[in-house]
């Protein structure tokens, strides 16, 4: 474990906490894409199957359980909570997620470290995570309302993977023979997907104004 990866994990955890607080405090999920939340739940389920058969560390196990529980809690709020589910703009959140899931799964079958069920599913989760934010970014473009908390959520979600990129550089130079090409390429793509958002987020922050996306 290094400081970059710990910072990345904490930023990821914080992003989820911010989203949960937004939903719980405002009893609203306006501007939040349920599709992205469901894609992330798929990412966590397919990636953390090793919870059942391999123990890495207490930290690793606890964080996986937290990520799984919070992901499903957010989905429960958006689908089942009587007040919150009325604030979900279903008509705008229409991204065809199959166009993300199927290619990622096919790619995981073609490019992986080992042709085993758990390894293919793990690889699938790596590819899927790179594009899981797309429905959320599309929803923002459509609804234009980037409320502060949702903006912070997306910013931190993008930042965590950027911190992981630094972690991979660090591990490459400090751990002889450490290679994770699949994760490195996918993580780079994932971070690039956020660059446009980062640009407008930082611009709004610099001008100390509410974030607005181009027409």
């Amino acid at each position: 474990m290094n400081i970059f990866r710990l910072a990345g994990d904490m930023t990821h955890l914080l992003s989820i906490i911010v989203l949960l607080l937004k939903i719980q405090a405002t009893k609203s999920c306006a501007g939040v894409s349920l599709k992205t939340q469901e894609l992330y739940a798929v990412v966590f389920v397919t990636r953390y199957l090793d919870l059942f058969y391999s123990f890495i560390s207490l930290y690793n196990t606890v964080m996986k359980i937290i990520f799984l529980l919070t992901a499903f809690t957010i989905i429960w709020y958006m689908r089942k909570h009587k007040v919150v589910c009325q604030t979900y703009d279903k008509e705008q959140d229409t991204f065809r997620v199959l166009f993300l899931i199927v290619p990622c799964f096919v790619l995981a079958l073609l490019v992986n470290h080992e042709m085993s069920v758990t390894e293919v599913l793990w690889t699938f989760s790596i590819y899927l995570e790179a594009v899981a934010i797309l429905p959320q970014l599309v929803l923002l473009q459509r609804t234009k309302n980037v409320d502060n908390l949702t903006g912070n959520y997306i910013f931190m979600l993008g930042s965590y993977r950027a911190l992981y990129l630094v972690n991979w550089v660090y591990r490459y130079f400090t751990e002889l023979g450490y290679r994770q090409w699949i994760v490195w390429v996918s993580g780079t793509v994932q971070t690039c997907v956020y660059l446009d958002f980062f640009y407008y987020y930082v611009q709004a922050w610099r001008n100390n104004e509410r974030m607005k996306l181009p027409g």
Binding site: H113, N167, Q180
Partner: peptide, 10 residues
Amino acid sequence: KEEVEKHDEL
């Protein structure tokens, strides 16, 4: 092979 075992990241 070593990459498969070392999924030590979240």
